[in-house]
């Protein structure tokens, strides 16, 4: 479990990093917190020729509330922001409570101290929390390459199993999360084998209620049930303009489990067990989100 030989560079700016990536082509990999990349290198599953260490690029770090790069007055988070910074941020708790609620589910404190938001989004593990949260919150991801900056709607960023719209010479620079509409409540729930393990199933629920308590919009995003984060369209549509009665919540769980997802089987969970967990967690998350929306 020692990596194959590689070269290591530590650029001093984002632009310099991008020019190194552009020059090296597919053999180069950005190194962020290293919590996914280094283990795969130690197993020799990844054998990059060059590591471009972006760990000290402070311009990629930070949490900014409102404005900033964003057009939407949302919350901007730099790619190199550590998981632990998100976990502890009062602004995140206030502006994106779903994100705050998901953070403690990511790995263990040691890993959260090193691992970065950008690394997690670029890595696009289907069992990762952050891609699902970003999808649930309609985030826009900011990328920079040799041709300059571009932004991509998060639903267009995830393209499949461990795949994204990121070009090899591009960096994720940050994400922008739009503010939640009034009357919105969110909830994040997950089941993993042990505290800190990757999710067997996780659910993000975002519910907006009107003054009469009717659901005007519900979003249900699941992790660890497909190639990437999965939007439960059927269940979401069925919830629109309905009061979230226990029956409606249960039906949503049923729709998610039986229609919206086609979960994989692995040594920890069969597809049937994943469906069951999705059924139960969807109902529980919806219920919590709806209660929070009513109190919002």
């Amino acid at each position: 479990m020692k990596p194959a030989p590689f070269r290591y560079v530590r650029p001093s700016s984002v632009d310099e990093a991008i020019s190194v990536l552009a020059a090296e082509g597919y053999g180069a990999k950005p190194l962020a917190g290293g919590q996914s990349l280094i283990p795969t290198m130690n197993f020799r599953l990844a054998q990059p020729a060059v590591l471009v260490d972006i760990d000290r690029l402070d311009e990629l770090r930070g949490i900014r509330d409102g404005g900033g790069d964003g057009a939407t007055n949302g919350l901007y988070i730099g790619a190199m922001t550590r998981h632990s910074e998100l976990e502890r941020s009062a602004v995140v708790r206030d502006r994106a409570p779903l994100l705050a609620e998901a953070m403690p589910w990511i790995a263990h404190p040691q890993i959260r101290n090193r691992g970065t938001m950008g690394g997690s989004l670029a890595h696009a593990d289907p069992a990762a929390e952050l891609p699902a949260v970003m999808l649930a919150l309609d985030a826009r991801i900011h990328l920079r390459g040799p041709a300059g900056d571009r932004t991509v709607q998060f639903c267009d960023f995830c393209t499949g199993f461990f795949s994204t719209a990121l070009a090899p010479d591009e960096l994720v620079t940050g994400v922008e999360i739009p503010p939640l509409p009034a009357g919105t409540g969110t909830a994040f729930l997950e089941i993993s084998r042990r505290q800190g393990d990757f999710a067997l199933v996780g659910v993000c629920a975002v519910v907006t209620l009107d003054a009469g308590g009717v659901c005007t919009r519900a979003s249900l995003t699941l992790l660890s049930v497909g190639d990437g984060p999965v939007c439960a369209k059927t269940a979401e549509d069925a919830l629109r303009d309905r009061t979230l009665t226990p029956d409606a919540v249960r039906d949503a769980g049923e729709a998610v489990a039986t229609i919206d997802i086609d979960p994989p089987a692995d040594i920890h969970a069969s597809a049937a067990y994943r469906r069951q967990l999705a059924r139960v967690l969807t109902a529980r998350a919806l219920d919590t989100a709806a209660r929070r929306a009513a109190g919002a």
Partner: peptide, 28 residues
């Protein structure tokens, strides 16, 4: 409740790491 050496039919061990061979931790 946690540990199992999972072999496939070709006698390949499918979980040769602590990510997938689950030892109980302090919280378990």
């Amino acid at each position: 409740f946690y540990e199992e050496l999972v072999f496939d039919e070709g006698a390949q061990l499918l979980n040769a790491s602590f990510m997938d061979y689950l030892l109980p931790t302090a919280t378990d």
